[in-house]
């Protein structure tokens, strides 16, 4: 049971990383702000350059 919970936690963490939720959390904690439309807009601005320069693989 413990092992299953561990697997589920890791899977969710992987999904949060893939879908940039973790990156947003890090952004909030780095800037010590709470989640809001304004904070997310700032996060997207920061992400924009890096994300748009990342090639999608074939």
């Amino acid at each position: 049971m413990m092992r299953l919970r561990q697997i589920a936690t890791t899977l969710m963490a992987a999904l949060r990383e893939i879908f940039d939720e973790s990156a947003y959390m890090r952004f909030l904690s780095r800037n010590q702000i709470c989640s809001s439309p304004r904070a997310y807009a700032a996060f997207l601005r920061e992400q924009e350059n890096a994300k748009a320069r990342r090639p999608k693989c074939c």
Binding site: L15, E21, M25, S35, P37, Y40
Partner: peptide, 9 residues
Amino acid sequence: RHLRPGKVL
């Protein structure tokens, strides 16, 4: 961007 910021999943 406007309703649930950051809730990507």
